[in-house]
Each structure stands twice: as structure tokens, then as C-alpha cells.
């Protein structure tokens, strides 16, 4: 507006503009998304980024230090460490995302049922969660993973059994407090079926909290997957995985420290990205 007359124009920011502004005002969410986007992009583009195949062995060049040819050097079988690192991101992120689906749905649903119905449903579900909580997390994970067999399938089964508890606990508390609100009572007196109230009215109200927990729990789950790999009861060796990489690099830790440090850094990086998103989302919804 270059005209001399001051013009009063009230322009309403568009919806997209407003949401962009809001994300901009939350640096933790912004940075979490950027970090995670980079990680996912690298994982997806792994074949383009790295000229090497992750399980391609070269016995003539084992345990090489980082160079222009091998950016992070090679491991004890002469495999390119950088290629393994980014292919491992594929495996670990994929398993992390898939293993979280069932526990999330089951946990949120059971939490809502417990909180909404109270009484014996609540007692039963609380008993189950409290029993699981009484044991150390990794003890259960290792036992179940051991029983259900190593490999991807074992990881899915393990987290299907233990993963829902976090969600059930958080959502139960939330639902129990929402249940006391007048509008739930109103919906009940108006004759809506309970399942409808739970799915159509309770669910949207508890979902933001559950998603925040999802983000934090994904980081926990990633570390658990890596731990299982490190202990040798996770992903089986030829498939690249950060956990197995750390344990394979361990014998050479005093001279070739980067063999274990690189995958360790990758885990920390992914964990930070997910936690930042979780914190950011919590802030976003709290402000609203």
C-alpha cells in the first residue's frame, strides 16, 4: 500500500497461515518435525544416498577409519558403516511405527472403557496395568521377546502385550475426569448408546493427550528395539539395526570407537526428534 491515504484494512489470516504461525511459535514442535523429517527422508532415500549395499562385504577393507570413500569407515566384515546406519534407520523406524499401532488403539480403547464405565471394568483394567507396572519394563520385554522368538515378529508380539499399558493409564485418568462432566451425563440422559458416547464424544476429547504419549512412547519403544538388538534377541544380524551395530562394534571400542558411537548417536537423534514433537504437541494443545 503506497498510497498516501491511510487505508484501514482488516485482513483475516487464513487458516493455513494461522496454523503455520502457531507452529512457528513453538520451536520444540518445529525442530522436532524438522529433525524427524530429515531422518525419515534419509531412511527412505537410503539407496540413493549411499552407493553401497548394507550387507555387501569386502574382506579386503575391514575396520577402515572414515574416509572420503567410506564416510564412516567400514566394520569388521568390510561393510560400509554409513550405508548400514541409514538402512538401519529404515528397519528400526518401520518396526517402531508398526509396533505402536496395535498398542495405541488397544490402550486408548481400554483406557476409555475403564474411565467411562468405572466399577468392575475399571478395577479389572487397573489391576492389569498395575501388575505390569510392578515389574521392570525391560524384564517383561526381554522375557516376552525371548519366549516369542527373536526377530521382527517377536518385537511386535512383545509390544502388543506390554505397549498398551501406558495409553490405558493416561486415557483412563482423563476419561474418568471427563465422565464427571455435565455433557457426558447429558448425552447419557438423552439416550445415546454408551459405545457411541465413547467413540464419538470421549475419543476426540482424549486423543490429543494420547498422541502426546504416543510420541514419547515411540522414543521409548525405539530404545527398546535397539536394546533387544544389542542383546541379540531383536532383529536378526544380516538386517541392519542400530542395536546389533552397537554390539558388533563393542569389541573394537578402544580403537574404533565410531563403530558403536555412530549408531548410538542415531538413536539419540531419533529419540530427541520424537520427544521434541511430543513436547511441542503438548504445548500446542495446552495453549488452545
Amino acid at each position: 500500500m503506497s498510497s498516501a491515504q491511510p487505508e484501514l484494512r482488516i485482513r483475516r489470516a487464513s487458516k493455513l497461515e494461522r496454523s503455520l504461525k502457531r507452529i512457528w511459535s513453538l520451536p520444540s514442535l518445529l525442530w522436532g518435525c524438522i529433525l524427524l523429517a530429515i531422518l525419515i527422508a534419509v531412511a527412505l532415500l537410503a539407496p540413493i544416498i549411499s552407493p553401497y549395499h548394507p550387507s555387501e562385504q569386502n574382506m579386503a577393507a575391514i575396520l577402515q577409519p572414515p574416509s572420503s570413500e567410506h564416510w564412516l569407515g567400514t566394520d569388521q566384515l568390510g561393510r560400509d558403516l554409513f550405508a548400514r546406519l541409514i538402512y538401519a534407520a529404515r528397519t528400526d523406524l518401520k518396526i517402531m511405527a508398526l509396533a505402536e499401532i496395535v498398542p495405541f488403539c488397544v490402550g486408548v480403547f481400554l483406557g476409555m472403557v475403564a474411565g467411562y464405565y468405572g466399577k468392575w471394568a475399571d478395577a479389572l483394567i487397573t489391576l492389569a496395568t498395575d501388575t505390569f507396572i510392578a515389574f521392570p519394563f525391560y524384564l517383561i520385554v526381554i522375557i516376552v521377546a525371548f519366549v516369542s522368538g527373536a526377530g521382527e515378529k517377536g518385537i511386535y508380539i512383545t509390544f502388543m502385550l506390554v505397549g498398551w499399558i501406558v495409553y490405558a493409564r493416561v486415557v483412563r485418568g482423563l476419561s474418568a475426569s471427563l465422565r464427571k462432566q455435565e455433557w457426558i451425563a447429558a448425552a447419557r440422559t438423552l439416550g445415546l448408546p454408551n459405545i457411541k458416547i465413547i467413540l464419538r464424544h470421549l475419543l476426540p476429547n482424549v486423543l490429543p493427550q494420547a498422541v502426546v504419549v504416543l510420541m514419547t512412547d515411540m522414543a521409548v519403544l525405539l530404545v527398546a528395539i535397539v536394546t533387544l538388538g544389542y542383546l541379540g534377541i531383536g532383529i536378526a544380524p544380516p538386517t541392519p539395526d542400530w542395536g546389533t551395530m552397537i554390539s558388533e562394534g563393542q569389541p573394537f571400542i578402544s580403537t574404533k570407537w565410531w563403530l558403536s558411537a555412530a549408531p548410538g548417536f542415531a538413536v539419540v537423534y531419533a529419540g530427541i526428534a520424537l520427544s521434541l514433537i511430543g513436547d511441542g504437541l503438548a504445548d500446542l494443545w495446552r495453549r488452545k
Binding site: W183, L190, L192
Partner: peptide, 28 residues
């Protein structure tokens, strides 16, 4: 049927009001 003291608290905050009303009609 009942009418409540605080009408704003008697409605689901995350559901469009017409949708809530239509839902009651649908079930009743």
C-alpha cells in the same frame, strides 16, 4: 429429558452443535 444449568458445559466441546442435535434425533 433434562435441561441443564450451564448449557455450554452440557454440550460436547469438540462436536458441532447441529451434529450433536442430529445424533439425539437419530437415536431417539
Amino acid at each position: 429429558a433434562m435441561i441443564f444449568q450451564d448449557p455450554i458445559r452440557a454440550l460436547d466441546p469438540l462436536c458441532p452443535v447441529v451434529g450433536q442435535l442430529a445424533e439425539v434425533v437419530y437415536y431417539r
